[in-house]
Amino acid sequence: MKKLAKRIAALAMTAAMMTASAGAITQDGQSETWFDGVWALIDAFGLKAEHDPYVLQNYINKYLEKHPDEMYDVLNDILSLLDTHSMYLSSEEYSQGFSTLEGFVGIGVGLQETENGVQIAEVMRYSAAEEAGLQIGDLIVKINGEDATKLKNADVASKLRGEEGTSVKLTVRRYGRDITVTCERRQVNRVYVSNKTMADGVEYIKVSAIGSQNDWSAFSEIWDSLPSKNTRAVILDLRGNGGG
């Protein structure tokens, strides 16, 4: 792609030289005529074109119609001119590199094995489990009406996950009382934003990643709540955050 950009610039310079007079070189070494014309053409038809941004786009589209197998390289060449953090990924690359951010389909709980059975160790924010009122410490005793007290972590996790839009009935034991809820399975994204009040007027906010809309919603909620806490200082912890 960089070669394509260079070709455009070369064509622009050639056209300008052929159509414009050479012009005089001033005492400070600058041309009065053709250099300015060439620069104007490069600016108009180059990657930074502002007045007619579709010129280069149409050129690239025509090129890719003839060479569709080069789309991956062409897109990444263009993005490399923007900054070092921009890139085009295939679906396979995205799944491999961002699988922890992609999440999974389920009800949104973390599980822990105990001597009494499998209990809920985490309830993820914005999940179906949170909406159903499930709590940390709830002991899972039935799944879809079947006894689950003898199941292992992996077995419970397998039964709670499934196709998006399907439902699972869960009976949990909380302080000796059995509670039954129904949760609809959906995409679950772990929230990578958390906060803690360190002292009066001092708030600590940890942002490990912005992996989904849930992370932005969590950060917005925390940030918007600061005035009500009379916050005077914020510690924003971005350690381990790769950016994005």
Rank of each mutant, 00 (worst) to 15 (best):
residue 36 D to S: 15
residue 142 K to S: 01
residue 21 S to P: 08
residue 83 D to E: 06
residue 172 V to I: 09
residue 135 Q to G: 04
residue 224 D to G: 11
residue 72 Y to C: 11
residue 102 E to G: 05
residue 137 G to N: 02
residue 52 D to L: 15
residue 58 N to D: 15
residue 49 A to V: 13
residue 158 S to E: 09
residue 199 A to G: 09
residue 129 A to H: 06
residue 72 Y to N: 11
residue 143 I to E: 00
residue 154 A to P: 10
residue 64 L to W: 10
residue 56 L to A: 14
residue 72 Y to E: 13
residue 123 V to M: 03
residue 93 E to N: 04
residue 141 V to L: 00
residue 204 Y to S: 09
residue 58 N to M: 14
residue 88 Y to P: 08
residue 102 E to I: 04
residue 128 A to L: 05
residue 110 G to H: 04
residue 167 S to E: 14
residue 136 I to Y: 03
residue 143 I to P: 01
residue 91 S to K: 13
residue 10 A to P: 05
residue 199 A to N: 07
residue 240 G to H: 06
residue 76 N to W: 08
residue 196 K to C: 07
residue 12 A to H: 02
residue 228 S to F: 14
residue 22 A to H: 12
residue 191 V to H: 02
residue 55 V to S: 15
residue 151 L to P: 03
residue 178 D to P: 11
residue 179 I to C: 08
residue 143 I to N: 00
residue 107 I to E: 01
residue 206 K to S: 14
residue 9 A to V: 05
residue 46 G to K: 09
residue 192 Y to F: 07
residue 139 L to V: 00
residue 122 E to G: 06
residue 160 L to C: 03
residue 50 E to F: 14
residue 155 D to K: 07
residue 35 F to V: 14
residue 119 Q to F: 05
residue 216 W to E: 14
residue 224 D to S: 12
residue 239 R to L: 13
residue 13 M to H: 11
residue 132 A to H: 01
residue 105 V to C: 03
residue 211 G to W: 02
residue 137 G to A: 01
residue 161 R to T: 08
residue 67 H to T: 10
residue 124 M to V: 03
residue 59 Y to A: 15
residue 126 Y to A: 08
residue 136 I to R: 06
residue 18 M to E: 12
residue 17 M to V: 09
residue 151 L to K: 02
residue 35 F to K: 14
residue 137 G to M: 00
residue 175 Y to R: 12
residue 80 S to P: 08
residue 74 V to N: 10
residue 212 S to K: 06
residue 195 N to T: 04
residue 164 E to K: 06
residue 232 R to G: 15
residue 96 Q to A: 07
residue 21 S to I: 07
residue 238 L to E: 10
residue 113 E to Q: 07
residue 23 G to D: 02
residue 27 Q to M: 11
residue 111 L to N: 00
residue 229 K to C: 09
residue 56 L to P: 15
residue 115 E to Y: 08
residue 236 L to Y: 13
residue 6 K to N: 11
residue 152 K to Y: 06
residue 64 L to E: 10
residue 162 G to I: 01
residue 105 V to W: 01
residue 138 D to V: 01
residue 220 S to D: 12
residue 106 G to Y: 00
residue 85 H to S: 10
residue 146 E to M: 01
residue 38 V to Y: 11
residue 225 S to T: 08
residue 122 E to D: 10
residue 152 K to C: 05
residue 209 A to E: 12
residue 104 F to V: 03
residue 189 N to E: 02
residue 119 Q to P: 08
residue 169 K to L: 09
residue 1 M to G: 08
residue 122 E to M: 08
residue 157 A to R: 08
residue 186 R to M: 05
residue 31 S to F: 11
residue 102 E to L: 06
residue 19 T to C: 13
residue 34 W to H: 13
residue 118 V to M: 01
residue 176 G to C: 08
residue 151 L to Q: 04
residue 124 M to Y: 09
